[in-house]
Every structure is written in C-alpha cells, then in structure tokens.
Design a protein around this nucleic acid. Structure first.
Lengths: 285, 285
DNA sequence: AGTATTTTGTAATTTAATTACAGTATTTGG
DNA sequence: CCAAATACTGTAATTAAATTACAAAATACT
C-alpha cells in the first residue's frame, strides 16, 4: 500500500490537526514533496512537530522520509488515491482515474505474471503447427487482436468469436496445434467446454485467465494476470488491457525466438500496407 | 527523462569524482535515497560538496531534491533505462520492457489528451441515434471492443471491420448518427473515404487518430492520443492500448451522463451473463 | 615549466528537522 | 456535572543536515 492510500485509509485514526495536514497533502501532493516541514505546517495551519508526528504515524522515519515515500506514490502516476469513478466526477476526474487505474492494473499484472510460464508459452507457440485464439464477449476483441499480430508471422492462425466455429475448430485440432483461450473470469461455460475438447484432441491449450478457475483447470498452461477489476461500472476494463499487453509479450517473445531473419519478414508485411495508406508527406488530402 | 536515465546518459560529462558518485548511486539506488549526503560522500569516497555539485549538475535543486527525483525514478519500477526490446533480451527483460513501455505510453496519452474534446465526444455520443465503430487491421479489434461496451447501454451500435459494410453503413447514415473512426496513423485511405462519406451524409464523425492526419481532416471531432509508437518490432502495440483506454473513458462518460438509473440497467446486463458462467463457489469442475 | 582553469576538499554558515517540555483541550469515571 | 486523567498541540531548544565560501590540489594548455 502506498503512502497516499495509507493516508486515506487511516484518515479516521487521525486527530483534528493531523487531519488538517492530511487534507493539505492530499489536495496538493506535488507541492508537498517540494515543501519544507515549516511551509507545510503553515499551509495546514498547524505546528511543525504536528507534521512530524503525522509522518511518524504513517510508519515513516520522519518528514524527509515521508516525502520520499510520497514521491514514490506520485511517481506511479497515481495522484488519485481513490481510483474508482464516482457519480459526481467531471471529465477531468474520470479521464484521469481511468488512465491511472489502468496503469495501476498493468503494474500489478507485471508483478504477478509468471515469467517462466510466459517462456513456456512462447516455446509452445513457436513450435505450433496451427494457433487458434478463442474468446467470447469482451475477450473476443483480444482474440482478434492476437490473430492480427500472429498473422503477420506467417503462421497458420485462426480466431473465432462464435462458439459453433470454436467448437468445430477445437474438434479438428490435433497434436502440435495450440489453442489459446481468453477469459478474465475463466468461468464462461462454453469456453471451458471448448478448452476441454481441444485438450482431448491432444492440442496444447494455453489459458489467459484467472489462476484458480474452471477454465484454468482445462489448460495445459495458464497465464494468469490477476488484475483487480474495477467493478463499479459493470464493464471489463483493466483486465482486457492487461490481456492485450500479454499478447504483445507473447508476440514479441515469438519474434525474438525466431531470430533476425524472421524479423525482416515482418518488415515486409508492414511495408505491404503502405499502398493502402496516404503518404506521410502527402498531406494534400 | 528520469534521473537514472539522465545519470547514465551524461556519464561522460562527469568529472572523476562525480563519476564515483554516479557509480555508487547506480549500484545501489535504494540505499541512496535513505542515506544522508555525508553517508553517500563516504561511500563514494568523495567530499560532501562534490555530491551536492553532482546533484546540481543533474538539474536538481540540491541533494534532498535529487533524492526525491531518484525515488520517483525507482518507484516507476524502471530499472531499464532503455525500454526498447532488444535481440538479446530474455523473457524477464522483454516482459518488463513491454509492460513498462505500455504504461509510459498511457502516461503520455493521459497528459496529451484533450479533456474538452472528450467531453464534447461524450455529448455527441449520448445524443446519438445510432453509433458506428469503424476500424481496420489492428484498430478493428478496438472497434469491436467499443461495440461490446456500448452495446450494453442499449443504444443502437454497429461495428464493421469490412470496408464494403463500412461503406454501406456510412452511406446510410443520417443526421444524428455518430460514426467513430479508429486509426492510429490516420492515413488508411479506405477509412478516410468512409469518414468523408459519413460526413457528407450529415453524420457526426469522431476520429480516434493522429492529430494532423488525412483522417483527422475528415472528422468533426478528433480525439488525438499521440502515443510514441514502438516501431522496433513493426507492430502497433501501445497505441492500441491507449485507444482502448480512450474507449473506456468515453463509455464511462456516457454512463455518468445518463445517471444512476441507467447504471442499474447495466447491472442487469451483467447479471444476464451469469447463466452462461460457472458459479464462483462451484469449483467442482 | 609555468600559468590558467578546472576540480576537489575543509571549514563555516545557514537551513531544516527533531526533541523535550509545557500548556490546552478532550474524554471518562465518579 | 465536575474533576482527574489522558491525549493533543504548540513553543522553544537542540541537533542534524545541507549548502556556501574559500582555499588547495590537480589537470590542461601555452
């Protein structure tokens, strides 16, 4: 828990003067880290020792140490302690909050993701005869994105967001095929079934899903992100972004494993798109 | 550029003693932020003023200020000064780099995005008779995602990743319709045409694209992200994530504008999905 | 080799942070 | 409702830290 969050969560344990200090700090944290204890005391209209005591109460060694912690909290790009969007938020507020909560989610995902599993997944993908990406609902767009990425690698890739097609594809899979199932909760029945079918047909099933979920149990390899989802608005937000980044990582691992010659090929694919685009210099239109 | 990067990049401009200081700091930055100037001077085997001068050379106000900057650099969790993936990177390295560069991209997007335009876009969307999301290639999955989100709002939404369908849809659009065109570069010819057609038919065209691009010129409203794209691997990565976050922001703005009663409706949509899922407690399967 | 310039360190000064203590407010038990 | 205890807050003194000014050493240049 960072200092800013700590201040908010323990706001009830503060005395009247300490609360004044807390308010001033929360109102302008950027100013705080560049202020002396005297300046801050003046802003909060309390004495200097009160500020010092405030810092100590937050388990820091003193005011300079507190500033250090505060600076780190701010560096995470989280001036907003409460990252949940609230009803009365204006455009500035909700825009900032959504950016920040997404970034925070990516940060936790980065810390929790298991690198050795990523490496195994890259292994499996590079050796795949065919790669299939399956997702439903919000995860369908992640699957599409994955298809777009891996298609460039000149590998047989398919992507279905239709359970019937997914099912047929899973039934037809054989050893050497890789099926990637994407689901944040890992509790979508249809997808679990498809994972099971693919597994029965000796395909390697990679799950981008919650660690301890029904879907995870059907998978040969589970890439768990464990992003805390903002449930306020009943929409998947951060989890989806984390999934996309994971796709980026797998794709990158794939290209690195394939070597430099392979990457020249990628450039060709990209260059082939040029004809469909306006020239960068041609700004006449 | 953060302080750590700065130290590395300007290592040649340092004097012999300053370099000693730099070495000690780079070797154990975590220790540094909790040391006094005296302690650090001793570690580097130089005098205290030398440390102070070192800090000044890095455009900080002095040693305490330097520690603040250093703390922020460390908090970002960016031990990697160079965030670009390199050929010899192992799984730990490229995973970390991709997470970090994505987060950095989101941070710049947050700073550059124009809030008043977001607000206008939300205005337009809430009043739309019909909303269409169009994207091609990598942006197609962003469009799909947008559809998934706005569909929950019980608003007429369409999404096409097929230029013929897009074209037909654009031709049929009328006043009050909103067309959202998604393209990172804004130079995809087909999409520019479609934007132009939609505009001619009095639809409001929102562009999620580069500020000064051909597509932008066809739009009534331009939401520019200006994310520095990592071109090393010839794949759009960060821009796409930023686009998704922008969609989240628009969707959130939409729900907030519609009020609390509307949000209850969202909950219903979510609850309706329950039947297709395994119960959270039922972990037997 | 001698001078100019840059670099470095010592010592003094200034500034900031902390501690000790005393007064004030607040709560609790009678 | 009052008194005693406890917790809270501020003033002033102390200590620690950082900065500045200046002098010495090292380096570079003529």
């Amino acid at each position: 828990m960072n200092v800013l969050e700590k201040i908010v969560s323990s706001v009830n344990n503060f005395s009247k003067s300490e609360r004044k200090v807390a308010d001033v700090i929360l109102a302008n944290p950027q100013v705080t880290i560049h202020s002396s204890i005297a300046a801050l005391a003046k802003m909060a209209d309390v004495s200097e020792p009160t500020v010092n005591r405030f810092c100590r109460r937050l388990d820091t060694k003193g005011f300079p140490d507190f500033k250090l912690h505060l600076a780190q909290s701010l560096a995470n790009g989280t001036p907003y302690v409460n990252r949940h969007v609230e009803e009365e938020d204006g455009p500035e507020a909700y825009t900032a909050k959504i950016f920040e909560s997404t970034m925070a989610a990516l940060d936790t995902a980065r810390q929790r993701v298991d690198i050795s599993t990523i490496n195994k997944a890259v292994d499996v993908l590079t050796q795949a005869k065919k790669i299939s990406f399956f997702g439903l609902g919000a995860s369908a767009s992640v699957a599409h994105d994955a298809q777009n990425k891996f298609f460039r690698f000149n590998v047989p890739v398919v992507c279905f967001d239709d359970i019937v097609m997914q099912r047929m594809s899973a039934i037809n899979s054989t050893e050497g095929d890789v099926v990637v199932c994407i689901s944040h909760t890992g509790r979508t029945k249809n997808l679990c079934e498809i994972a099971a079918i693919a597994k029965e047909n000796d395909a390697t099933v990679i799950g981008i899903t919650a660690y301890d979920s029904p879907l995870a149990r059907e998978c040969s390899l589970v890439l768990s992100l464990d992003v805390p989802e903002d449930t306020d608005l009943y929409m998947p937000m951060a989890s989806r972004v984390a999934q996309l980044v994971l796709i980026d990582i797998l794709a990158t691992g794939f290209t690195l494993r394939r070597g430099s010659k392979f990457r020249e090929n990628l450039k060709k694919v990209k260059d082939s798109l040029r004809g469909s685009r306006f020239d960068k210099k041609d700004m006449s239109l």
